[in-house]
Amino acid sequence: MFSRLFGFLSADMAIDLGTANTLVYVKGRGIVLNEPSVVAIADLRGRKQVLAVGNEAKHMLGRTPGNIAAIRPLRDGVIADFEVAEEMIKHFIRKVHNRRSFASPLIIVCVPSGSTAVERRAIQESAESAGARKVLLIEEPMAAAIGAGLPVTEPSGSMVVDIGGGTTEVAVISLGGIVYARSVRVGGDKMDEAIISYIRRHHNLLIGESTAERIKMEIASAAPPEDGGEGALTEVKGRDLMNGVPREVLVSQRQIAESLAEPVSHIVEAVKVALENTPPELAADIVDKGIVLTGGGALLNRLDQVLRDATGLPVTVAEQPLSCVALGTGRALEEMKRLRHVLTSMY
């Protein structure tokens, strides 16, 4: 009863609870928060306390002493650490409400289309115990398609590929519903891991996740340079596996593209499978309009070209691919009456 009363004091929110980044959209204000999904927890004489959340905590990732743990509470698009995820959502809610007490907003959270009922319930419950008045869920591909500005409610097929931190969602959408969706647990994280293992194998150098992510953002490409050269170079610092001392090596774009071949092929495979399972009428629409890429993975150089060559379809990258899901979830919040069909609840 009180939560309803306090609802007037709270700004309703849409949260893109991503494996890598969490974006918060506040009704009437747009995206107000975009921070890494990382929580640093300190163990102070047996009592666990949140030390930092978001950007601050990300800098601690991989650099913590024994009593501090920098945790990413989400893995593969779903909650891996329930309590920490709850703390993180609580922190974001407070931050958005300027630490005002009694905030109990309506929250729309997006979930991967491939997530199980247990995983969805976990997300919903952690948002509820973080102080939400009501929690609604939206499927990530639908949110991404709405956020990318696709005409999802028309009787015409649209294919969206959302490459997030933990999962890649491929979906065919028509008439406001998902006709076919496929979720593979390949995303930015898997690319980082691929880069780490490649550099360990070929350079005998051990690097951390943050370094791998930096390499990916700087020079990574889905395909080797067209001119057959090495492409751009970047310095990579890590620990030498042979003699255990820190060392620096130079890696080229070609090498990184080689390392990413496996995760990229998984994504291509997922798109192909989705196309195979698309009803023929919608397939015809997709031939006309093509595939839209969203999510951080869409920023990978020449991924659109790889997909174009693999499928023979026009592939375009959405505007602001990183915030498409948050924008779509936010639009569902703004136009909740009209878009209520895409919102679900586990209760």
């Binding site: 990318a148 093509g290 174009r308 026009p314 375009t316």
Partner: peptide
Amino acid sequence: LRIRRPHLLALEEGRWHDLPGGAYALGF
């Protein structure tokens, strides 16, 4: 680019209405 020829022609001639709606036209 795998974009169909009529769409490319529409882009060159500025016929915005002949392109698929929404984000597609801008993407093309």
